[in-house]
Design a protein around this nucleic acid. Structure first.
Length: 696
DNA sequence: TTTAGGG
DNA sequence: CCCTAAA
């Protein structure tokens, strides 16, 4: 018997909220939108973080130089660091737009050291002096959780201005930037635009000979750049003010790679913040456009300096691609299929690891570009390991402070909560860690491949080069796919981390590749190579970083790969694009028990004909689960429940859940016919707390 | 776009 | 999971 339809929440059994099924057209309009007021991570915030970073950098640089401006409060910096540590996440933003040369600026945090700077320049002899910083790392921080309604744009000119400085510009935004700047908006212009105050701040990257105070902030001219809530980090290559910035929105790289949100755990809680069809058509289209360009976004960034390496880069790229495909097919779905899922999401183009050299190491005359252009890190292996070694007798003692997780690609809706983001990252990380990672040992920049050698034989002894010992995480199948002779050094960790003044911060870096912020105050800069193709590639594909341990003094952990990630990306991207657009089957993502449970619960309440609602109710945060997926899953669940346990495969689903599936299925089946001609169906059967069904 | 089903 | 006809 069908129980009362309106059951109050708190009822011990199913809640059967009566949700009259209005015509689709009507339902569609129901403003289910639970606006996310807080904790919304949006591009703006990320950008704001970057901007703040930049400013901080400026300040800190200035402060380090006694003769420079007054020291500002660094509280916000601390906050950021703290946050970073806490979240272990780095967000990178990248501006991508068709044909535009938008580039993100890297906001370094490390103290700049001259030698770093030099090495940078030297390592990239081909770099064009015209190129700009291209990397941006943003740390997500609760401090930035405020919602910013307008745009923030950061632009850094590659050319010096009359003063010999590099103009930077941060525009738009409301309060965040200002907050981050600790009120240093003296000269910022404030204007009312609609209901918002936008302001622009111009910064100048000083092209000082002294590496120590590379950046000088200067605020003067204001410029308003308006855009529809887009975040842009632009780098002008041209000193001449641009008439406009390339436009694109919501492209924020989160630095995580899995494109799905696996945080289904919280799905069933209606309390979570959800955006019910958050964007309108425009947003939708926008997303689509975005998706279309998803694969080539890297292309526009190709720099001259990187071209020189194109050939080789391509080769390795393809090699990797090939292996990847055999092992893990491309995961991005065809744009046309995921539009909604991707709506208003941050898309991680790929990990643009900012090398510490970027902005902070302001290169000298015309060298600017070199330093920034090539810093790319091998995405795959973005592990950042900190090893704390202690010598003890003839044994070697290690203390790995942390490993950076290999590339992650995560896509989350802007409306996702920070908490869900954390969960997503966690799940992704977990998945990756459990998906075949292995640890590699690197000594003096070279991989120690022979597992049978003793540490002593390998030169890892207390009397040896412990300083150059590092550990890396790499795909376990790397060896198989990689050419035998290659000695890819995907990533490397700094075995030498002496825990520089950081006993207090044991957690120091552990986020996914965020070298930018990771570096402890006085750390050496990690040079990492990166290859852009990751975007498309499975996170675990290692890139053959061309590295030679040559001059590995303890400082340069990883030789800079000469392979230009961008170069690699250029062509491949387009190809991938095609590939993806055509037909890339999504990766299989078996439903977990908890997901099944959420699904069952939702179906019990909503019925079997309202997958969209089910999706929103229980899987709103799981962007990788479409309503079709849920429908299909339900279908299989019903099937599974009707076969003998022996015939079932995959992760076993608790029998009680299957029972619920059957009962709900039959209930709704029956109900369906009834409702056909009449009112709304009565909600379904009810079950008691024990999950036993009541008789209908 | 969402549903409903077949493949 | 994909593909699609229908709605």
């Amino acid at each position: 018997m069908v129980l009362k339809k309106r059951l109050d929440y708190g009822f011990n059994g199913y809640q059967i909220p009566v949700i009259p099924r209005a015509p689709r057209s009507v339902r569609r309009r129901v403003p289910h939108k639970k606006l996310v007021e807080d904790h919304q991570i949006c591009a703006f915030e990320l950008l704001a973080a970057v901007a703040g970073k930049l400013l901080q950098e400026s300040e800190s640089s200035a402060s380090s130089n006694a003769s420079e401006a007054k020291v500002q409060s660094f509280s916000h910096i601390d906050a950021i660091k703290k946050e970073r540590i806490e979240e272990n996440k780095a967000f990178r933003s990248e501006c991508l737009d068709q044909g535009s040369c938008v580039e993100s600026a890297f906001i370094p945090e490390l103290a700049v050291q001259e030698h770093n700077f030099k090495s940078t320049v030297e390592d990239h002899p081909h770099a064009e002096n015209d190129s700009l910083l291209e990397r941006t790392s943003i740390v997500t921080s609760s401090d930035f959780s405020k919602k910013v309604d307008c745009d923030l744009k950061l632009g850094i000119c590659s050319n010096k201005n009359a003063d010999g400085n590099f103009p930077c510009k941060v525009t738009g935004g409301s309060h965040i930037l200002q907050d981050l700047c600790n009120g240093k908006t003296e000269n910022a212009a404030e204007r009312k635009i609609g209901n918002q105050v936008k302001w622009t701040e111009e910064l100048t990257v000083t092209n000082t000979a002294s590496v120590k105070d590379p950046i000088e902030k200067r605020m003067n001219s204001k410029q308003l750049i308006n855009s529809d809530s887009s975040v842009q980090l632009s780098l002008y290559r041209d000193p001449v003010p641009r008439a406009s910035f390339p436009k694109h929105r919501n492209h924020v790289n989160v630095g995580i790679r899995d494109d799905d949100d696996n945080s289904f755990g919280c799905n069933k809680f209606s309390t979570k913040i959800r955006a019910f069809r958050p964007q309108g058509r425009n947003g939708y289209r926008r997303i689509r456009r975005m998706l279309k360009s998803k694969y080539w976004r890297v292309a526009p960034k190709l720099r001259d300096c990187e071209v020189s390496n194109t050939s080789e880069g391509m080769r390795s790229f393809y090699r990797n691609r090939k292996s990847i495909h055999t092992r893990d097919r491309y995961q991005h779905e065809a744009p046309s299929k995921r539009r909604k899922l991707c709506n208003r999401s941050f898309v991680v183009a790929y990990d643009q690891e900012a090398s510490s050299e970027s902005i902070s190491n302001c290169p000298e005359e015309g060298e600017y570009s070199r330093s920034g252009a090539i810093r790319r890190k091998a995405i795959e292996e973005s592990k950042s390991v900190k090893v704390h070694k202690k010598q003890k007798g003839s044994s070697v003692k290690f203390s790995i402070k942390s490993f950076k997780v290999p590339e992650l690609y995560i896509e989350v809706p802007e409306t996702a909560t920070v908490g869900s983001l954390k969960r997503t990252v966690m799940e992704t990380v977990t998945a990756i860690l459990g998906g075949g990672l292995r640890v590699g040992v690197v000594l003096q920049g070279k991989k120690v491949r022979d597992d049978n050698r003793t540490l002593q034989q390998a030169g890892i002894s207390h009397g040896g080069n412990l300083d150059t010992l590092g550990f890396i995480l790499e795909p376990s199948f790397t060896q198989v796919t990689e050419s035998p002779n290659d000695s890819p050094q995907p990533l490397q960790c700094d075995a030498n981390q002496k825990l520089l003044g950081s006993p207090a911060s044991p957690v120091l870096d552990s986020g996914p590749s965020n070298a930018t912020f990771d570096p402890p105050p006085v750390t050496k800069i990690e040079k990492q190579c990166e290859s852009k193709h990751d975007i498309v590639i499975s996170p675990r594909i290692p890139v053959d970083a061309v590295t030679d341990g040559a001059g590995t003094d303890s400082k340069a952990l990883v030789p800079l790969p000469m392979v230009s990630a961008e170069a690699l990306a250029v062509i491949p991207m387009s190809q991938k694009n095609k590939r993806c657009e055509t037909s890339q089957r999504r990766t299989r993502r078996p439903f977990s028990v908890s997901e099944v449970e959420a699904l069952v619960e939702a179906v019990e309440i909503l019925g079997t004909g309202r997958w969209r609602d089910v999706k929103m109710r229980a899987f709103d945060n799981a962007n990788h689960r479409t309503y079709v997926d849920l429908k299909d899953k339900w279908k299989t669940l019903v099937h599974t429940a009707s076969i003998s346990p022996q015939q079932r495969r995959g992760e076993p689903v608790p029998q009680d859940l299957l029972d619920r599936v059957l009962s709900a299925h039959s209930y709704w089946l029956q109900h369906q016919s009834k409702q056909h001609g009449k009112h709304q169906m009565e909600p379904l059967q009810i079950m008691d707390a024990q999950g036993e069904k009541f008789e209908t």
